[in-house]
Structures are given as C-alpha cells and as structure tokens.
C-alpha cells in the first residue's frame, strides 16, 4: 500500500502539484487520470523518487519515502518495478539481456536460476522466442511487454506504469491491460497506472484518481464514474460525441 499525504511540487513559480492526498491499495489497479498538464507524470515521478516533492509525505507500507536516506531508498527501489511510456528498454541490449539486467545487478543467483526466471517472465508476457531480438527490431506492443517483463523480474511489491497504452492499437492495449490486471492480482502488487485511455479506466480502474490542474478533483472506482455528477470528470471521460451519447443513454436508463 502506498499512502500519499498532501504532496506539493513546484518548479520555480509554477505550482504543478498543489497538495494531493490519496491511498493506493495492494492487489488493486490504481489509475491516475487527468488532462495533459494536470500533473500526472510529475505526481508519478514524485512517487518513485525521480522528483523530490517540496512538501508532503509518501509512505510505502508505512515507511516515509521522503525522509529516507539514500541507502534506505535503494532498498525500497528494489521493490519497485516501472514501465515507462516509451518502454525505456536499453538499446544496446537484447530482449533477454534487458530482462536479465536487474537480476545481474541485484542478485547472486546462478546463471540457470536467472535464465529460468527470465524465460518465466517472458513467457508470462507472451514473448517466447524474442530473446535475441534488439528493441529496435520489435514492435511497440512487444516493447511494452518486454518492459513489463523487466519490471516484474525481481518480484516487485509496487508496479508503476506511465501510459502503458500510448501508441498502441486498441487490441494490443486490451492485452496489456489484461496482463497488468492479472499480474496485480496474481502477485498482490500495488499497481499505479497513469493513463489517458478510457477503455483502461472503465475496464480495470478499481481505484481511479482524477487530477485537475494539480489538485485531486475526484476519486472512486470505475463504477462510480458512471454515477458521478462531477462536471470536470464527465467532460474528461465522455469527451467524444460517441461517449457523450453513451452517457446520455446511461442517464436515461438510470
């Protein structure tokens, strides 16, 4: 579980996060949504420690991440997996080497144990037979899956995904969503996903946090969204004509 207490972040005079508090529970897919510039990426970067918040606290299972020493942070970071928007695979390494990298860095397992784990993770994300390919030789969807395999290879307790569906077709997006949901349940991980994809929100959002201009404007589950009267949230979720009509239909039935 990750508890966020009144996180504030500014860059010079520009206030990006203006005091966000929420709780991300274990075993759930927690989604952060919001328009571009609402502070989603900055919020996630603060959560994983890539940016230092100016105020507030981030508690990883009760331990205050913001007040930890470098060494303590390192030990927490080894429990974190992160899937980046562009996958952030290492170009100079093959798919297998990318997934193997955290194991080589942080474990003293035998080569066989490491390879078994790598193959298990690649199998888990349906990427069998791509071991020797370089990131430049595989598709965007495959890159995301390699990114997921790399982020789960050390059995993380916390999984962060920054726009896992960006640049993917709807079918592949659905596969990635299913994969993330399954992994979250299977290993009881606290998964936090930054997304713009409304299919993901409605399909997997057990907890949804809606950010607007640096504030938490709304939170609830995907089911609550349909009942919500929050105008900003409704404008964001049901932005297209098709979705507006759908909303109207739901309201009429409801």
């Amino acid at each position: 579980m990750i508890e966020v207490k009144n996180i504030k972040k500014h860059f010079g005079d520009k206030k990006v996060l203006k005091g966000i508090s929420t709780v991300f529970e274990a075993g759930k897919a927690n989604l952060i949504i919001g328009t571009s510039g609402s502070g989603k990426t900055v919020f996630m970067k603060c959560l994983v420690g890539l940016l230092e918040p100016n105020d507030g606290a981030i508690l990883y299972d009760g331990e205050n991440f913001s007040q930890m020493t470098k060494k303590e942070r390192k030990s927490i970071r080894r429990k974190i997996g992160m899937l980046f928007q562009g996958s952030a695979l290492f170009d100079s390494m093959t798919v297998e080497e990318n997934v193997l990298f955290p194991l080589n860095m942080f474990t003293d397992w035998s080569t066989k144990e490491k390879m078994d784990r790598v193959n298990f993770c690649l199998e888990r994300v349906n990427l069998v037979g791509a071991n020797d390919k370089y990131p430049g030789e595989i598709s965007g969807g495959m890159m995301k899956r390699v990114g997921i395999a790399r982020s789960i290879v050390l059995n993380p307790k916390y999984l962060f995904c920054d726009e896992p569906n960006s640049g993917l077709d709807p079918q592949t997006s659905l596969l990635i969503d299913e994969l993330l949901t399954d992994i979250t349940k299977e290993y009881n991980i606290t998964t936090i996903i930054n997304t713009h994809d409304m299919n993901s929100v409605m399909g997997m959002g057990e907890k949804v946090v809606f950010l607007h201009q640096g504030y938490k404007d709304w939170e609830g589950s995907n089911k609550d969204i349909l009942q919500s009267k929050n105008q900003l949230l409704n404008d964001f979720i049901f932005a297209s004509d098709f979705l507006k009509a759908l909303r109207k239909g739901i309201d009429n039935v409801g």
Partner: peptide, 17 residues
C-alpha cells in the same frame, strides 16, 4: 543524451542503480 531523453537513465534510477 539518447538514454536521458528516452528515459533509460530514469529506468536505471528507479531500479536503484
């Protein structure tokens, strides 16, 4: 520079490297 822009350096940092 490419590693920085494509978030590969961030990925290392998040891993604890």
């Amino acid at each position: 520079g490419t590693m920085r822009i494509s978030e590969q350096i961030d990925a290392l940092e998040v891993m604890g490297v």
